[in-house]
């Protein structure tokens, strides 16, 4: 038999992976005793396995991971408060602008914004004339809605 032409060559991997039946395994083990090529191949397979099963150690990374993890969490909490702060500031700005813009758009004196009757009649006037809705009013309203929605979304995402 030539050194590189053993018909059982394919079985070496199967044997190492325990994929042979009991009968095939016994048969192969008998063959192994007499076949130098299969013995050689088996030794190679064992060397590969030995190398692949070497446990590699990254060293003491625990403290590094925990430090980075703590920093990440702190950043998360900090960015949550940052977003919350931004939302509050934007909310106050929006309220102040609304306080000035609303009466202006409703064609009422600024002082009248605090008087509910006048505001109601102003709104009535505005809603009564839907086709003549001021596009600026709609635009500002839409921008506020978008701002509030995106702020809520950001806060929820940061919280997670």
């Amino acid at each position: 038999m030539k050194m590189n032409s053993c018909e059982h060559l394919e079985k070496v991997i199967d044997y190492r992976l325990h994929r042979l039946t009991d009968e095939q395994e016994k048969e192969f083990e008998l063959h192994l005793e007499t076949c130098a090529f299969c013995q050689h191949e088996l030794a190679i397979e064992q060397a590969i396995e030995e190398e692949l099963s070497v446990k590699l150690d990254p060293g003491f990374i625990e403290s590094k991971v925990m430090t980075r993890w703590r920093l990440r969490r702190e950043q998360g909490i900090r960015s949550f408060w940052l977003y919350a702060y931004r939302v509050i500031v934007l909310g106050i700005t929006a309220a102040v602008l609304a306080f000035i813009l609303f009466p202006f758009l409703l064609r009422l004196p600024i002082k009248s914004f605090l008087e509910i009757n006048q505001l109601a009649s102003g709104l009535e006037r505005l809603l009564g004339g839907l086709p003549q809705i001021n596009p600026v009013f709609v635009g500002v309203g839409f921008a506020y809605a978008l701002l509030i929605a995106s702020s809520i979304f950001t806060i929820v995402r940061t919280r997670r």
């Binding site: 991997i13 199967d14 190492r16 992976l17 994929r19 050689h40 030794a43 190679i44 060397a47 590969i48």
Partner: peptide, 24 residues
């Protein structure tokens, strides 16, 4: 997974052809 593992082992062995002396 079993089939893929077997194939991976064969491919690795093929890549190591000619390096037998280094392995043993």
């Amino acid at each position: 997974a079993k089939v893929c593992l077997h194939r991976a082992r064969k491919r690795l062995r093929k890549q190591l052809a000619g390096y037998e002396n280094e392995l043993l």
